[in-house]
């Protein structure tokens, strides 16, 4: 029971790290970026290539995955995304689906269609027993890293000047620009950071979520649920939503395997009926 809860928390933490970049993109620019999963996949593949081809330590791969995907994100943002901020949602959806298709086929071409495996360092693999509860070491590691990241994110958003600008821009873009905040710059940096986080999440999740070319398609629905349940205005909203989704998904697949895959959809529908504007909406539905 507790083991499942633990696994669910680890899963939810990963989902949060994967999706939180998307919440910012959505909240700040009202841009529906379905290609977010492609960045996560990129991070995962960076790790796989570095570890399996060049034998670099797993601990170095994680920051590398972050940096590489952040750079990719920045480049794409400056070259492609920025032209579509004012486009309507249909265009954004089509554009990002196009990117997803390209990423899926590209990953298939370069890396092959099989599941990618990574060999974790020995101190992270296996389970340990704490008070009768079996705890996967790697899951513990995931939880710790993600919790630290979530905390840091919260602090950046609430305490630093950059976070302040970001929040101002999310709340009202025009006024923020009027106050002399360079919103495009803030956004480019945030987009890069969010992509980097997705890459990091993809790298860490390669072990738990699996990694194959269909990754962006498989997890698109999870990201969308996290973002629309959690709302785009806070860090805590998506965090709780990701936790809820992670725990429900793991528990559902464990206790009722026959209907396990439907748990997230059931959750989605219940949420839609009870709180159509998200769990923590502030009334201003975008």
């Amino acid at each position: 029971m507790l083991t499942i809860l633990f696994d669910g928390v680890a899963y939810g933490m990963l989902l949060f790290i994967l999706a939180c970049g998307l919440t910012v993109t959505l909240g700040l620019m009202n841009f529906i970026n379905l290609a977010h999963g492609a960045f996560a996949m990129a991070g995962g593949y960076v790790t796989v290539v570095m570890m399996n081809r060049y034998g670099i330590s797993f601990y170095w791969c994680l920051p590398a995955a972050f940096v590489v995907t952040a750079i990719v994100g920045l480049v794409l943002e400056r070259t492609l995304y920025q032209w579509l901020y004012r486009a309507d949602h249909l265009d954004q959806v089509l554009f990002s689906i196009g990117l997803v298709f390209m990423a899926v086929a590209g990953a298939d071409y370069f890396m092959g269609g099989q599941q990618q495996l990574i060999n974790l360092p020995p101190e992270l693999s296996g389970r340990m027993d704490v008070g009768g509860v079996g705890i996967g070491r790697y899951r513990l590691f995931t939880i710790v890293v993600c919790a630290i990241l979530a905390l840091v994110l919260q602090l950046i958003l609430s305490k630093t000047r950059f976070g302040c600008r970001l929040r101002a821009a999310v709340d009202d873009r025009r006024v923020a620009m009027g106050l002399g905040i360079n919103v495009p710059l803030v956004f480019a940096l945030t987009f890069a950071f969010g992509s980097g986080l997705a890459g990091l999440g993809g790298a860490m999740g390669a072990e738990i979520l699996g990694l194959d070319p269909n990754f962006p398609l498989k997890f698109m629905i999870y990201f969308l649920i996290v973002v629309s349940v959690g709302g785009t205005s806070t860090v805590s909203g998506p965090f709780l939503a990701a936790m809820l989704l992670g725990i429900a998904d793991v528990a559902g697949k464990y206790y009722v395997p026959a209907i396990g895959p439907f748990v997230i959809y059931a959750l989605m529908i219940i949420m839609l009926i009870l709180r159509p504007d998200g769990l923590f909406s502030r009334g201003s539905g975008r």
């Binding site: 959806v93 649920i225 629309s228 839609l272």
Partner: peptide
């Protein structure tokens, strides 16, 4: 219910 985003999700 909801916005464009929730519709996409739904």
């Amino acid at each position: 219910r909801g916005s464009d985003l929730t519709r996409l999700m739904t």
